[in-house]
Design a protein around this nucleic acid. Structure first.
Lengths: 167, 167
DNA sequence: AAGAAATCCGACTATTTTAGTCAACAATAA
DNA sequence: TTATTGTTGACTAAAATAGTCGGATTTCTT
């Protein structure tokens, strides 16, 4: 059984990060039974109300299941190794609004002159991000297997290896 | 002479896209002399006033030079092959505000339990995006050499090749 | 049956960011 | 000198983000 793949918009807000943090918390602590959001809220320093919002979406996306009542909480719908980060982000982050030359669609791209020169660029970047977030699972996070992934290959020139942050 | 490298925050708004489009326009049309923003505004369908804002920042970053008066406009400060997309994005997009567990800094990351489990993840993603945007230059864009870059290597599992957008 | 612990639900709000507009000014070429 | 273009800064409207709040519902425990 292979994990489903999610498409990720080039949009990464704190909402998505909170969701991933909360899901990682669930993966790390909830191996036995359901975990109450109030616990997650304390551990991750996120407000309970906000977490409730996020988990409503996560549940709608089928990533978690809920148990109501005393002793209830949320459980992952699948093993941590089968939940990709891309799915989490896609579940909580709303669709990016398509400005002018939207990534993916060729809207308004009847380019005569220089218009939409950058279309391919954003397309490709979005694809790179998707690939990355689809390659990492919750298990990778709690096992700390994320760092040190190989770099992308530049298109044509033999680019010097990019070592780190400038400045 | 090697192009400088810029650090890119994990933040990609239309502002950055507009700037890249405008710079690509400049690269494509302005090989002889300065290009007036009014022309760029028409071709790229961006409002002139907004472009002025963006180019003020681009100039401050040293990516373009300006010529005032009749026949004036903006010129690239370097050859298209020496201007990386990352520099453009970094010039116009403000610094991301560091929430809770900021990428790069270890602020608030005195993690006892599960806190900051995702730190490495966002760090690594930011690095991937930086690598990509640092690998692409304006020349690549106008020569359409952007598409078909190699995928990132997943961390540990031998992930199935991600072929495209789901759904 | 009562109460506590939890999810659920929807409306509301505050803050920030984005995406501009507008007006006035400065330099320069024709 | 006049038209063209850049320069600057203040201002604004709309959208997205990041929540809050109040209440309802379910279910376990006593």
């Amino acid at each position: 059984m292979e994990p489903p793949k999610a498409d990720v918009n080039v949009k990464l807000t704190t909402k998505g990060r909170y969701a991933v943090s909360a899901m990682a918390d669930l993966a790390a602590t909830g191996s036995q039974g359901p975990v109450a959001l109030s616990d997650v809220a304390l551990r991750q320093a996120i407000s309970l109300s906000y977490l409730e919002q996020l988990f409503a979406k996560l549940k709608r996306a089928g990533l978690v299941a809920s148990v109501r009542g005393v002793g209830g909480g949320y459980i992952l719908s699948a093993a941590p190794g089968d939940i990709r980060i891309a799915e989490i982000v896609a579940a909580v982050d709303e669709q990016i609004r398509t400005t002018a030359c939207a990534s993916g669609s060729s809207l308004g791209c009847q380019g005569t002159t220089a218009r939409c020169l950058t279309h391919d660029l954003w397309d490709e970047l979005g694809r790179q991000i998707s690939i990355f977030l689809n390659a990492v699972t919750l298990e990778d996070i709690i096992e700390k297997r994320v760092l040190g992934m190989a770099a992308v290959n530049p298109p044509h020139r033999n680019a010097e290896k990019y070592t780190g942050a400038a400045e």
